[in-house]
């Protein structure tokens, strides 16, 4: 039998089946309270300062930083290319297109991660995707990226690699001391440990 007909005999029925069954990727528009709690407790919304710094340095066009502090604070200091959406204006009409979209990766940040977390929670409950929170906020950012601490002698190599990266990032982003003052208010000392979150951008690809 002709191989082409054989192939057709195999793929056409399979294609019909797959066209007929509903997709297995149904996303609930709204999360149930349990699902939300689950995401919060797993810390799925967090992106580590290292991840963000890497994206800033590589000019990743998909990154959109969103400063949820007041306009005055934003004027004083903000991360590169961040836009300002103060928390109280979060639900205003003009920001819907920014917050509810599939193209970019929004990352909220505030001084600690509290306000940003609130912003995330609200948008998540509205069913928006692609919104994340800078872990530990600006305070933790300053601590880890702007003024990285040299790891102790005998630390594992990864620690040193991380330190080198942060040092480089700090230089690339204009160095530390200048910003630490402006972001200093509201230190809470509850910087969360860096969890390697697996449910993020998936995998890096490219040929």
């Amino acid at each position: 039998m002709n191989a082409r007909l054989l192939l057709a005999a195999a793929v056409i029925p399979l294609g019909l089946i797959i066209a007929a069954v509903p997709e297995n990727t149904t996303r609930p528009y709204k999360l149930t309270a349990e699902e939300l709690l689950n995401e919060v407790s797993e810390g799925q919304q967090f992106m580590s300062p290292d991840e963000i710094a890497h994206m800033i340095i590589s000019n990743d066009p998909s990154l959109q930083l969103i400063d949820v502090r007041s306009a005055a604070e934003y004027e004083k200091f903000s991360l590169p290319n961040a836009i300002n959406i103060p928390l109280e204006n979060l639900l205003s009409e003009e920001y819907v297109d920014i917050l509810n979209q599939d193209v970019k990766l929004n990352v909220f940040y505030s001084n600690s991660s509290n306000q940003a977390d609130q912003a995330w929670m609200i948008t998540r409950q509205l069913g928006y995707n692609n919104n994340y929170v800078l872990q530990g906020g600006l305070n933790y950012w300053v601590e880890t990226i702007m003024n990285p601490e040299k790891p102790a002698e005998g630390s594992p190599n990864e620690e040193f690699a991380k330190y080198d990266f942060r040092k480089g990032a700090s230089d690339a982003l204009g160095g530390g001391a200048a910003v630490s003052a402006s972001a200093g208010s509201g230190t809470q000392g509850n910087t969360p440990p860096i969890v390697k979150s697996k449910k993020k951008k998936g995998v890096q690809g490219g040929c």
């Binding site: 082409r4 192939l7 057709a8 793929v11 056409i12 294609g15 019909l16 797959i18 066209a19 007929a20 069954v21 509903p22 997709e23």
Partner: peptide, 19 residues
């Protein structure tokens, strides 16, 4: 359209191209 429907359409196009 759904992924499945598009896949089916592509299958038909591909078979036509093979011919």
């Amino acid at each position: 359209v759904s992924r499945g429907v598009l896949t089916f359409l592509i299958i038909l196009v591909a078979l036509a191209m093979f011919w």
